[in-house]
C-alpha cells in the first residue's frame, strides 16, 4: 500500500510539471519572435545605418557603380568637382535605373534622356521632375560607407 500511496503523488507532480512546461513552451514559441523583433539587431545597416559598399579604390575618378544598400539601388559616383557621392539610382521620372555618362561626367537616365548633376543630384535636363535623392557617404579606413538618406526634396 505504501507503493500505492507514494506513486500517485509522484505521477501527479510529473504530469503537473509536464503540463506547465508545455504551456510555457508554446507561449514562449509565440512571444519569442515578437520580443526578438523589438530588440535592435547588431547589424545597423539593416536599419539604415551606414553600410560598407566597397573599398575607396573600387570607385576611381570619373566613374560610377550601382550598389545595393538596404536593398535599394544606389549609384555611387566619383567626380572631380564633387568627389564621392551617393544618390538613389531610381530616376524620379518613371523609375528607371540611372546610368553614368562618362563623357559628360553626369548621371544619365537611359529611358528619356533625363540628366542629373553628379555633385548635387539636381536635374540638368529632361523629364525628371525632381532631383535624385542623395545619401550620406563616408570613407572610413579606406572603406566607403553609405548611410541614411539626406534631407532635401525627393520623390
Amino acid at each position: 500500500m505504501t507503493e500505492l500511496t507514494g506513486t500517485p503523488i509522484t505521477r501527479r507532480k510529473s504530469i503537473q510539471l509536464l503540463l506547465g512546461f508545455s504551456i510555457v513552451a508554446t507561449i514562449s514559441g509565440i512571444v519569442a519572435p515578437i520580443i526578438a523583433y523589438l530588440i535592435p539587431r547588431e547589424n545597423a545597416a539593416a536599419y539604415g545605418g551606414p553600410s560598407v559598399v566597397g573599398a575607396a579604390a573600387d570607385f576611381p575618378l570619373n566613374s560610377s557603380k550601382i550598389v545595393s544598400v538596404n536593398d535599394k539601388p544606389i549609384i555611387i559616383v566619383n567626380t572631380k568637382a564633387g568627389g564621392l557621392k551617393a544618390f538613389s539610382a531610381i530616376c524620379t521620372h518613371l523609375g528607371c535605373v540611372v546610368a553614368w555618362n562618362e563623357r559628360k561626367s553626369i548621371i544619365h537616365c537611359p529611358c528619356h534622356d533625363g540628366f542629373f548633376n553628379a555633385v548635387t543630384g539636381a536635374v540638368i535636363s529632361g523629364p525628371p521632375p525632381l532631383p535624385l535623392t542623395q545619401y550620406e557617404l563616408v570613407v572610413r579606413d579606406g572603406q566607403v560607407l553609405v548611410g541614411k538618406q539626406l534631407p532635401g526634396r525627393s520623390a
Binding site: 536593398d71 535599394k72 539601388p73 518613371l94 523609375g95 528607371c96 535605373v97 537611359p110 529611358c111
Partner: peptide, 14 residues
C-alpha cells in the same frame, strides 16, 4: 525583387 523590377521596367521603357 523591387530592384530587379526597376531594371526590368528600365528595359521595357527603353
Amino acid at each position: 525583387e523591387q530592384i530587379k523590377l526597376a531594371d526590368a521596367k528600365t528595359n521595357l521603357i527603353t
